[in-house]
Computed example of a mutant assay.
Amino acid sequence: MKVVIIEDEKLAAESLQEMILKHRPGAEMAPVLPSVEEAVEWFQLNTLPDLIFCDIHLSDGISFEIFRQITIKCPIIFTTAYNQYAIQAFQVNSVDYLLKPVKEAELVKAIRKYEDLQKNNFQDEMENLKHMLQTADSSFNPSRKTRFMVKSGQSIKSVSSEDAAYFLAEEGVVFLITFDNGRFIINYTLEQLEEQLDPAIFFRANRQLLVHIKAVNQVKPYFKGRLQLQIAPNGPEDQVVSSSKASSFKQWLDM
């Protein structure tokens, strides 16, 4: 069995490889593909594997973009930190959908499911599943992002979006700051976060800041119709809402 892992978190990829080889020691592991661009290039130059493990959010975008550019007919097991893409996943040859951190028992169950499908004509089974999903929910609309997988020392942990006080962009790097003052690098732009998070809870104050409504401690009038914010915990100083956004910001805070 030849396996490809598409994953931009090194520790998550290594953990996945270890579990796969533990339970299927004869598996041939291809190089880990950390981005949409590298995955597309690899599939253009190599024959398809028997099975793909694929994260959904990669360093340069959503992994579904790979399958829009390349025809993939082999089975896929998606691994992701949140569950709003379940139906899209099953529409691109997915045999299972595992939430991070991936549990060993769930991984083994998914591999067995893949092996059973192989015995029972995978392509026919997938076509039937896709038809059922399209019939059941042709108007599917993903829910908002509810958690993030972040690196903490040598491990990976889950942080709920409810615990994120604000997201701060500094010199091309985006940090997630929690209400208990945790600080974690995440592989998202503020633009991506703005689209994925609940707009009733998070507001894009300026080019550097996306803030949780409960993290806004104080709002003061500033020059030329702008607003100056005091953010907790230990929020960066001189965070300003532009005059063009001031009105919508006040409405968001119900001021």
Rank of each mutant, 00 (worst) to 15 (best):
A13H: 12
L16R: 03
I20Q: 08
L21W: 04
R24T: 02
E28D: 08
E28C: 07
M29E: 06
M29K: 07
L33K: 05
P34C: 10
V36Y: 03
V36N: 00
E38N: 00
A39G: 00
E41V: 00
Q44M: 02
Q44P: 02
L48D: 12
D50S: 13
I52R: 05
F53A: 07
F53C: 01
F53T: 09
C54P: 15
C54R: 09
S59F: 05
D60R: 15
D60C: 03
G61C: 02
I62H: 11
E65M: 02
I66M: 05
I66T: 03
Q69V: 04
T71Y: 13
T71N: 07
K73R: 10
K73G: 04
Q84Y: 04
A86F: 06
Q88P: 12
Q88A: 10
A89W: 06
S94Y: 12
D96Y: 12
Y97F: 14
L98N: 13
L98D: 14
L99P: 02
P101K: 10
E104G: 06
L107H: 00
K109I: 01
K113T: 08
K113S: 04
E115R: 03
D116H: 08
Q118G: 15
N120M: 12
E125A: 15
N128P: 02
L129V: 06
H131P: 00
